[in-house]
Measured scan of single mutants.
Amino acid sequence: NITNLCPFDEVFNATRFASVYAWNRKRISNCVADYSVLYNLAPFFTFKCYGVSPTKLNDLCFTNVYADSFVIRGDEVRQIAPGQTGNIADYNYKLPDDFTGCVIAWNSNKLDSKVSGNYNYLYRLFRKSNLKPFERDISTEIYQAGNKPCNGVAGFNCYFPLRSYSFRPTYGVGHQPYRVVVLSFELLHAPATVCGPKKST
């Protein structure tokens, strides 16, 4: 009989979030998941669920729940959905087409922007091929755009693959930082360890 609440607040209220290319994953298990708490945590810009209804979450049980978190800019949030393409979905964080879970995003301009520009958040701009779903690539190998090998040196047709967002508070919403948490629900042929409040007794 599990009584402890799932530590969603640790994920959502973390002081620092990860850069999207090096997104963070927390496995959540053996706890009571009260998803209604999430609705009250922040004024969400996005709370979209796929393959599951957000209002039914509190009635369900899962084997595992994974919470992935990272920062992107406002106009990239739409890429965090099944079947999307674009720089983020292709080279940084890719959801599977049959994704079961929820994408939660909110504006973090007050936390993640600086007047002089916050350069701490990076994204991958160049990659030889698209990522597979939930693949994480943290390599910093020089990207070869031409025929000549780069031998690890940046220059003509040889690019450092990561680029930094420079978040400034005066930017338009599309270029402001957004914190994203992706909850993916895993149903294996194994005992369910993460249940809503109704199912945990």
Rank of each mutant, 00 (worst) to 15 (best):
P161E: 02
P96Y: 00
N40H: 12
T100I: 13
Y93K: 02
T170V: 09
N30G: 08
F17G: 05
R73V: 01
V181N: 01
H189P: 12
N130Q: 13
F185T: 02
K114Q: 15
S200C: 12
T3H: 08
D98V: 05
I142Q: 06
S184F: 08
A190E: 12
D34F: 06
P161C: 03
Y93T: 01
R163H: 10
Y21R: 03
F134P: 04
Y35E: 06
N40F: 06
D9W: 10
R168W: 09
F70V: 01
V77R: 05
E10Y: 05
P96F: 00
V194C: 09
E135F: 02
N30E: 07
I2F: 13
D59E: 15
F62L: 09
G83F: 10
L162G: 03
N30Q: 06
W106C: 02
T170W: 14
G196K: 09
P133S: 06
V181W: 02
R25D: 04
F126M: 13
N30I: 02
V194Q: 11
L162C: 03
A192T: 12
K94C: 01
D112Y: 00
R163F: 07
R73W: 02
A14D: 07
E186D: 14
N4W: 07
N87D: 09
P169V: 02
F62Y: 10
T201K: 14
N120E: 14
L187A: 11
P43Q: 09
A33Q: 07
P82F: 00
V182F: 00
F17C: 02
E10M: 08
S184T: 15
A190V: 09
I80E: 03
S113A: 13
N58E: 15
D68W: 02
I104P: 00
G152D: 09
A105R: 01
V182N: 00
A154E: 15
V71K: 01
K114A: 14
P161A: 04
D98L: 05
I104D: 00
K132N: 09
C150Q: 05
N118S: 14
L183Q: 00
P133D: 06
N24L: 02
K56L: 09
N4R: 13
T46C: 08
L60D: 07
L41S: 12
T193H: 10
S166F: 07
N130G: 08
N64A: 15
N120I: 08
Y178E: 03
D34G: 05
V194P: 11
N40W: 07
E135R: 01
G196N: 11
K26T: 14
Y159F: 12
N64E: 13
I88L: 03
L57T: 05
F45P: 15
C6W: 03
N4T: 12
R127M: 03
Y66K: 06
E135Q: 10
F62M: 09
S166Y: 09
S69A: 04
G174V: 08
N118L: 05
Y123I: 03
A42T: 07
G101T: 00
E10I: 07
T193V: 09
E76K: 02
L187Y: 10
L111G: 06
P149V: 10
Y91W: 07
L131D: 04
P191G: 14
Y93H: 01
R127H: 04
N64P: 11
S129Y: 08
S113C: 08
A18I: 01
G155M: 07
R179M: 05
F126W: 14
I80V: 08
Y121V: 04
C102R: 00
P82I: 00
Y171A: 15
S36Y: 04
G146S: 12
N13P: 00
N107D: 05
F156Q: 15
F167L: 04
F45N: 15
T193K: 12
Y159R: 10
T100R: 11
F70N: 01
E141Y: 06
Y35N: 06
D90M: 07
V11N: 03
S184Y: 10
F8V: 03
N107F: 03
R73N: 07
V153D: 10
